[in-house]
Amino acid sequence: MRGFFAYVKRNPAFGAGIGILIFLLLFTSVGRLFVNPQHAYPLSVPANLPPNPQYPFGTDRQGRDLLAVMVVGTGMTLQIGAIAGAIGLSVGIVLGFVAGYYGGTMIDTIITSFIDIYMSIPGFLILVLVASTFRNVKLGVTEMGLIVAIVSWAGPARSIRAQVLSMRERPFVMMAKLNGMGNFEIVMKELVPNLLPFLVMSLSQSVYGGIMSSLGLEALGIGSRREPTMGMTLYYVQYYSAFMVGMWWWIIEPVIVIVLVLTSLVLTSFGLDEIANPRARRKA
């Protein structure tokens, strides 16, 4: 633990990112003990109230208690990102390792060209098409995470491939090969442990990407209309023109939560990058 604090002192971005993330997780988990999660849904409390002693965060046009919305919604938005990030990274690891390990062969060419083409189509448009074509499927938090995962594998796959490609030629991999290790064994015993910090960074990046995509989709009204996720909250802010009637609390609160969520993830990946690439350390 003392080692951790000493490290954070050297790598403040990492410390700040993890710190905010822990705060948000506490806010959404411990917060549930203090609010009634049911009040995050429409018609549960009086509408349009500015912050007051009973509802410290105010209430919205549909009669949601915004404190409950923030507590429940922060968790939901993080959950969407976590689902998309985990799936995206897993697929990315499989494709990235296969392409990288067989670098230069036919398999690599097929996988990389597919990734390149896929990444040239803006992911957001693919998501818009998928989500609006399957509009009859009831979109909950899990479904939203699954949909967003459709585009969150390509980035990790490409960067993991590049890492594996450069690591494949290192002496310790040659040594393992000479010792008669199988391909799968080399990947699991030599490559994965060495790439671990990099993989954790990719995870944090794809969670960030997943949340960004989900926010964009929900801001356009694609998502569960009922669930109080952050993106949906912004959609209703826009839908009911909260800015025209001066309901500042309804605008500022989700904006602050989203800024905290996104900044914490960016800072965390930034800090992890320093762990993954020690050579970049202290250059700036």
């Binding site: 605008i251 904006v255 993830l265 800072l267």
Partner: peptide, 18 residues
Amino acid sequence: LMVFSSVPQFLVALVLIY
């Protein structure tokens, strides 16, 4: 700059609108 670069455009738009 780090905060601005990591949020979606429409979040900035919302604040500007208000």
